[in-house]
Nucleic acid binder design. Structure first.
Lengths: 226, 226
DNA sequence: TCAAAAGTGTTAAGTTTACACCCATGA
DNA sequence: TCATGGGTGTAAACTTAACACTTTTGA
């Protein structure tokens, strides 16, 4: 009788909450939602959802991400479980936070609209539901800790990007200025960041070379240092 | 009706599993238990327990640690949530893994014995229950990632320790040799690692100076680099 | 023609690594 | 007296940080 021993113990609602990061115009942004149900309907919150009976927790997070962005292959990483007794005023809910990195231009705006979700600058977050602020802080900390050793920053950029964009992304996430020449020297040493012959004319009159992250080349010798 | 909306969603058993690290004779060890209940009773596993209805998840982990070691103020850190649908063959259980660092000499051996728990070298772990191997790997990775930036290694040593012990600890956790003179030079720069006038005569005829980690001094300028 | 962003190398400072011998003691 | 682990400094290699001017072009 396998379940006999377990069944004397309580069960809990288990949810996932997603910190969806995007990057635009030198700003790191998070996708926030007006909570669509009670209690505390209408408050700013992360997008979340309850785990289903036959669903892995990562699948639950992917499902929530898909609902809100229309994107399937999203970079996603677990931040951790949040399980204080009174963290949720509705009932006891243990929530597992995940952060996701998306190219903000690929996100389906209609889905955002339908879900009352909006991009907010990390600089000016409104007061948030429950422990969602903590979750975002945990996610940012994790992102900061890995951005220099893992090639994840590209997930926040379009497939082709300029070195200025890339540098700005690093500066924003790390919260510090980086020397342009030193940064470009380091990028130049990475074979998997490839210069294309496309030119970006958006950001300057002169035009800037567009680069691309080549995952295949990276896989061959997965060593990253920026 | 706060709970009305939530209550349409399923509930799950939620457990904590503890990776308890100890260090002795140049070996990193984990405290493993013969599983005391079905299913798969008798298999090697981490010490775990179900979260109680009115208990934070960290409190649950502390409770489990206390049951097995008799220790109350243990360094503990969350590794993450493990929630694959079929990870537990008994029933669906979402488990949150924590790792703990203990001074192996302070652990209550009787409690270990009562719980059929034994210290196993990390080098020679037996096959383990469910995804417990993964949990240990996650814990070790996390520990490796923080040991050079946070003063946590001392948690695995007695209050007074020799520099050789400390170096051996670092070598074992990082899995690489460290140059003795360079290591001691770096230690010498840290004001919160204090030389005492006690001498250890256990490990050598000549005797080695015993050092102490001074948390108060560290708090004043919490910058760690080893 | 000029404002705005792109692009480009060198040097000094700091950090990390490699390396070998003498010391004190108990058996 | 000798085997064992404790304790100590220096120089070379490498890495990081600081720094300023020229180019291109659309408005």
């Amino acid at each position: 009788m396998p379940s006999t021993y377990y069944s004397q113990y309580p069960k809990f609602h288990v949810a996932v909450d997603c910190i969806i990061f995007g990057f635009k115009k030198g700003q790191l942004k998070v996708l926030l939602q007006k909570r669509p149900f009670e209690p505390r309907q209408g408050e700013w919150s992360l997008m979340g959802g309850f785990v289903k009976r036959d669903e892995d927790i990562d699948s639950a997070a992917q499902r929530v991400l898909y609902q809100l962005t229309g994107l399937k292959t999203i970079y996603m990483k677990q931040v951790g479980a949040f399980g204080s007794v009174n963290r949720d005023s509705g009932d006891r809910v243990i929530s597992i936070a995940f952060f996701a990195l998306v190219d903000i231009d690929r996100v389906n705006e209609e889905l955002n609209h339908e879900n009352s979700a909006y991009w907010e600058d990390m600089e000016k977050l409104p007061p948030l539901l429950f422990d969602h602020k903590e979750m975002i802080e945990g996610a940012l900390k994790k992102l900061r800790g890995m951005i220099n050793r893992h090639p994840v920053g590209f997930e926040l950029l379009p497939p082709l990007f300029t070195l200025t964009q890339l540098q700005l992304l690093y500066e924003t996430i790390l919260g510090e200025k980086i020397d342009k020449r030193n940064f470009r020297k380091r990028v130049g040493e990475l074979s998997f960041i490839e210069k294309t012959d496309a030119i970006d004319k958006q950001s300057s009159k002169r035009g800037a070379a567009l680069y691309r992250f080549n995952g295949t080349v990276y896989q061959k010798e997965p060593v990253f240092k920026l």
